[in-house]
Simulated assay, not measured.
Amino acid sequence: MVFPQTVTPLVVIIPFIKKQIPRLRDMLSRWSKIDYAPLDDGMSFIDEAKTDLIFFYNKGPNEVEEQINKILDELGIRKHFVKISFLYADLSEKDDVYPIATTRMFYRVIKDEELRQKYKYFFYMEPDTLTVRKGWMQALHNIAFNQKPFFSLGSINRGNFVNIEPHRMHINGNALYSFSDEHLSFLNELKKNVFFVFDLDPYMYMLSHYDALIKYWHQFIFDDIIMNMYKTGYSEKQLVLENPKTFFVHGGWQV
């Protein structure tokens, strides 16, 4: 299917660094297989599921763009998206360290005025996020646009490994996010109080500021469209069988 050039309210954004290109290739290769394809002819929303794709690199423009374009051509991925483009974080050496690098990159996206004007939601999808069934593009559109507005929608830690118990209470960074002004206002508010890593900060802030918690907690939706299996082994076959609404798995490893 080739989409016409029209408005695309949803964009998939893949943040990555150079050493993740092999993993990125593995993720994209799944999309070329019928069992993991972005679109499913048997599902609804196939005509409405118009989506763009952005590859978001931590540095500036270089040879990685050519490498990824070759992968896209080889795997036949382009046909699934209205537009595919590249975005660059241009991180300094000082900022290009974990976890501050992931936070800088996220805020580079959420504050980008061009992106904010064009899209309503974005799906932030690191290279270790795997699709586990086809029709995931339609599933993203269905869940993003057929319920009340939200700031973020994704998975709590569903794995067995937990570093710090209170940190478990947050949506993993691989999730759907709103470009709404209200969401950005909330993020600007919390940055004055906490600054650790972008996906954990909202919860650290709300759990220590009750007025913010009662005002914003409902904007964060825990959902099983994506499952965070942090540092945990799982059987893909069993996971798919037991979770019919799950389309993505992040982290962990298959056993």
Rank of each mutant, 00 (worst) to 15 (best):
P149S: 00
F3E: 02
N157A: 10
E126D: 12
N160E: 13
K120N: 13
N243M: 04
T129K: 02
L10Y: 01
M1L: 07
V197R: 11
S44D: 15
K59T: 13
V162K: 06
L239A: 12
T102V: 14
N69M: 08
L130R: 11
Y121H: 06
G159I: 06
T51Y: 01
S44M: 12
V2G: 04
W136T: 03
K192F: 07
V12H: 02
K111V: 04
D40G: 04
F122K: 05
E63Y: 09
V82L: 01
H80K: 00
M1G: 10
R108F: 07
S155N: 09
E63C: 07
R78F: 02
P149T: 00
F45Q: 07
K134S: 15
D47G: 14
N146C: 10
V255A: 11
G135H: 08
S29N: 11
G251K: 03
Q254F: 08
A175F: 03
P61H: 11
S208A: 14
I110E: 11
F145D: 09
M206C: 10
V109L: 13
I21F: 05
I54E: 02
L72K: 05
R30Q: 15
F55D: 01
K148F: 00
M229K: 15
N58H: 14
V255K: 12
Y107M: 10
F186M: 07
P4A: 10
S208Q: 12
P149R: 00
P38T: 01
F161P: 00
F81D: 02
E48D: 14
P99H: 03
E65S: 13
G251I: 03
N163G: 04
D26K: 11
L187H: 09
L87M: 15
N243H: 15
L24G: 00
D211R: 11
Q147L: 01
H183P: 03
V64F: 03
I164G: 00
L28S: 07
L176K: 05
V64E: 15
D181M: 08
L184V: 11
D73H: 04
K191V: 06
L207G: 10
D40I: 04
F222G: 02
E236L: 15
F45P: 02
F45S: 11
A89L: 09
